[in-house]
């Protein structure tokens, strides 16, 4: 029985099998070429409408989704909370239903509440793509990170990947952990105990509080942003101490494998979690991640769009 994609939504990597994740990566690999053409557009989503429903600020994710949808020939509507009726007190579902009533095929949603994308998947007929729901998941970022690793190293299985920093607040970390462990990588979450909850072990990850101990065995180091806007009171004594213990700098890079690859989902706090010489250095694939995000999101649009697919919210 050949593989068949059956999902109408992309809500999180937790709900996908290894085979399904690999299928998205393979499709992204095939679509990567479209961005190299003289006419960077395929007609697949012609006449379809994608709405970007962003209740939190975003630069690269919103633009990347928009460009990916445009390259598939969809019409794209942008919604951001700041300029909308949500500021007048409209609920998420009401906002989404009103927008859907204009004839929308795919809704890309980012929202501060975990489960917001699931809720929309239950309430709307459109396909829902989760672009980040609170600290829960950010599946396309997880996919593009895994895609970037696979393009660079040729495989995922057997790799050791450190995710460093504010794991507790990070949907990027959660999507990466689900995806990478399903594909057979070993994931080590590294950070101060206040930011690395023990429950991560239940997701299949290992935990370490000392970057210097794990760095020598890593094939990939994914440096997360310290989310200063989500730290009510700082969960560590000072940014300076954090930077000294968990920041990636040239000195610390000497402990890493010579062919280690360095990633960051952006936006970077240069000088806090990563120094400019490492971020812009020859082991960094931070800008490739952004480029690869386009192909990844085109692949997701291809797979979730149209057709008579059955899907419950999380299946």
């Amino acid at each position: 029985m050949p593989f068949e994609w059956t999902h109408k939504h992309l809500l999180g990597l937790e709900y996908l099998t290894a085979e399904e994740i690999t299928h998205i990566l393979d499709t992204a690999e095939s679509l990567h070429e479209v961005s190299m053409r003289s006419i960077k557009k395929v007609p697949y989503l012609r006449g379809k409408v994608v709405v970007n429903l962003f209740f939190e600020p975003s630069t690269r994710t919103a633009l990347s989704f928009k460009l990916a949808a445009t390259r598939m020939s969809a019409d794209v509507l942008d919604f951001s909370k700041a300029t909308s009726s949500a500021a007048k007190g409209e609920t998420l579902v009401d906002t989404a239903k009103n927008i859907e009533a204009m004839g929308i095929d795919i809704v890309v949603v980012r929202h501060p509440v975990p489960g917001a994308a699931h809720r929309l998947a239950e309430m709307l007929d459109a396909s829902i793509v989760n672009a980040g729901d609170g600290a829960h998941e950010h599946p396309t970022q997880g996919l593009l990170d895994i895609f970037s690793i696979r393009r660079k190293l040729g495989k995922i299985e057997g790799l050791t990947v450190a995710i460093v920093g504010d794991i507790a607040h990070s949907r990027v970390a959660r999507s990466n952990i689900w995806g990478l462990t399903k594909l057979g990588a070993q994931v080590i979450c590294v950070g101060p105990p206040t930011l690395v909850p023990g429950a991560l072990r239940d997701m299949g990850a290992e935990i370490s509080y000392r970057l210097d101990d794990v760095l020598p065995e890593c094939d990939v180091v994914n440096m997360l942003r310290i989310q200063q806007e989500r730290q009510g009171a700082l969960n560590f004594p000072s940014l300076r101490e954090y930077s000294r213990l968990f920041g990636l700098n040239a000195e610390r890079m000497k402990k890493a494998k010579p062919d280690v690859i360095i990633m960051h989902p952006g936006p970077m706090n240069r000088g806090v979690e990563i120094t400019p010489d490492v971020a812009d250095g020859n082991r960094s694939i931070i800008l490739e991640q952004v480029t690869n995000g386009l192909a990844t999101r085109m692949a997701v649009f291809y797979l979730v769009s149209g057709g008579a697919q059955d899907d419950s919210a999380v299946d």
């Binding site: 593989f3 499709t27 095939s30 057709g307």
Partner: peptide, 14 residues
């Protein structure tokens, strides 16, 4: 494509 139940696998143009 809109009529197809199964999504064809995209093998890529080169």
């Amino acid at each position: 494509v809109a009529l197809m139940r199964k999504k064809p696998i995209v093998r890529g143009t080169d």
